[in-house]
């Protein structure tokens, strides 16, 4: 009987102990790893820089990214390109490029050109001399219209043959810009 009483008591006390329901409002979570913005700046010697920008402020929300290209490229010109990746859900915006460059052995940008008379070349590399690609050069030739796709892969196979199929890994960013060379 004593045991019965004590076990009942233990159970009852447990009931009270575990009922620590605090009615405080939960705090919002601002996603730390969301990438909202990709900005590619193409600068030719002496010219105005051209900006390709994709911005998706609601991250994985229903709104699609807003894509903007500030101007056309010139024929037979070499541009030096830099890529900046931001998380603008935080304030101030977090520069994710720094993280990507720090973990350069686990990241790589890929440039896909379709319909344009242009070529790209990697401008920066990881410690094993495999490409990273937050910096690059783009060289145009004749006038044409088409698109450039920028893809950032996380944990790709490194080294790879430069194609997405061979690299594998998972996609962190993929944005296609319609571009004209005139």
């Amino acid at each position: 009987m004593k045991i019965k009483f004590f076990s009942a008591l233990a159970m009852t006390s447990l009931l009270f102990l575990s009922c620590n329901n605090d009615d405080n409002a939960p705090e919002p979570v601002n996603e730390e790893e969301v990438i909202t913005t990709l900005t590619v700046t193409l600068t030719a010697a002496g010219g105005t820089p051209i900006e390709l920008k994709s911005q998706d402020l609601d991250g994985d929300g229903p709104d699609a990214p807003v894509i903007n290209v500030s101007g056309s490229l010139a024929t037979s010109t070499t541009y030096s390109g830099t890529i900046k990746v931001l998380n603008e859900t935080e304030s101030p915006a977090e520069d994710i490029t720094l993280e990507v460059e720090e973990e350069d052995d686990e990241h790589q940008f890929f440039y896909g050109i379709s319909g344009l008379n242009a070529t790209t070349e990697y401008g920066n590399f990881d410690d094993d001399q495999n490409p990273l690609g937050t910096e690059f050069t783009l060289t145009t030739t004749d006038a044409s219209t088409g698109s450039i796709t920028f893809t950032l892969r996380h944990e790709p196979k490194k080294p790879n043959d430069g194609t997405l199929a061979d690299a594998g890994g998972e996609t962190d960013i993929t944005v296609t810009f319609s571009v004209e060379i005139e």
Partner: peptide, 9 residues
Amino acid sequence: VEFTIRGAF
């Protein structure tokens, strides 16, 4: 599908 900067999901 929905689009994000990571592509379509």
